[in-house]
Amino acid sequence: MIKVENLTKRFAGITAINNLNFEVERGEIVGFLGPNGAGKSTTMKILTSYLPATSGRATIAGYDVFEQSLEARKHIGYLPENTPLYQDMRVNEYLRYRASLKHVPSSKVKERVGDVIELCNLREVQRKLISALSKGYRQRVGLADALVSDPDLLILDEPTIGLDPNQIRQVREVIKNLAQKRTVLISTHILPEVEIMCSRVIVIHKGQIRASDTAENLLRNHRAAGSMRLEASTGTDDARSMLAQVPGVKDVTEEKDGEYGIFQLRLEANTDPREEVMRLAGNRQWNVRELLRRRATLEDVFVELTHSDS
């Protein structure tokens, strides 16, 4: 559905995206993940023909976004960053205008607008001026706009930014519902969102792709280290240096809690030295009251991948 080849975009002095290559298959829900300034919005603006690329090419449903831009755009429902809307129009009037711009047949406009108003829970504000709506409602008007032509491909740029937790939940619900028969590319820097919604994640940093995989595979394969927490009373042993020698342990910190020591073990990637640690504790007759392994989260992977100098 989306195919991006060697895509590069330079602004005066800044390379916003550098030689991107990726594909999104029909039916996928892909999370486009990266810190601020990574180049997510720039990529989306090129895909929607708003900006021309400096070099490289991109196609939507087989149509080049530059050469056959009109055809390509017919397949896209786009929610730009910050959701620009005509403030002086009413919600239903705006959606009718958008439907007709997007070539929805005149006889279908009313029905489609009704459908998206239902889908995005806009019924109670449909006669209000857009300027009078709260941020959450505006975001949903933007979503309704993206959906009104029933496009195959949705490109959503940070659809939940600036919303409160309830609104985020509502918008996520909407996106999840409508994703069922569509291809979705959604940019965000909110991690749980990706884990909940996306079938695949593309991590982008400084204009380059750092990873492209399912969230599970990223967690399984990635170098991001997990950690372990041990609470034990270790008597007179120098437990810290003993623990540090267990294979797979990177380093150890210790805090005192009365008789007990609280040890934080940073682990190397893909290691699970729980058994070794228990064996050591048994041999040295430590009293263990807690042993906890924390798996690497997507957040750890993300931090690792987008660490400034990595």
């Binding site: 929607t48 786009y78 730009p80 620009p84 809307l85 403030q87 958008r98 711009l101």
Partner: peptide, 14 residues
């Protein structure tokens, strides 16, 4: 100023 050209020109409009 409002950035609305982004939604106008990303619709199939020339």
């Amino acid at each position: 100023r409002m950035g609305t050209f982004e939604m106008v020109t990303t619709a199939p409009v020339q």
